[in-house]
Amino acid sequence: MIVDTWVIFILGIMIIGSIAAIEQKEMLSAIITVGIVGLGTSLIFLFLQAPDLAIVQFLFEIFAIIILVRAFIKPDYHKSEPSIMNKIVTVLTVLVLVAILFCSIDMLKALPEFGNPSMETSKYYVDNANAAKETHSANIVTSIILDYRAYDTLGEATVLFTAILGTITILRIKTKKRKSEEAIE
């Protein structure tokens, strides 16, 4: 039961942190406050017996913060004056979201209880450590992502590759065009 207490505690901090990050006026503080949410996620992964995910989440949080801070820190970036229309939209959104929350309580009750997963698909991997016996890899998560479901990983590598290509393309085309314009001028 101690896991439940810790998870609820950290989730509470994460909710407060995310609200603070979204409502923050200063952009640098907002980016750093999102770090609370990411590191809290990493901690919860550790409590839920997923050390693989905890490592990856921790590193990616650092990486994301570096990217965001490097790209967006300039003092004259962020000036926006709140309008009355915006306030009305905010109130309406909060009302709709609270309604969704109340409607979804029944849905959440139908889920399997926390701590008792159904594990129909992965029973085979875990029982007697079949996965380790078949692939001879001590880490069962690795044996799933790189042997049983290596096709998924290939797709994931393709998506990552496409995202890299997309970033390079977005940042490049205009620069080349401007260079040619400068050459003409």
Partner: peptide, 8 residues
């Protein structure tokens, strides 16, 4: 050591 320890 991705197949022996956490990581990869």
């Amino acid at each position: 050591h991705g197949h022996l320890t956490p990581g990869g």
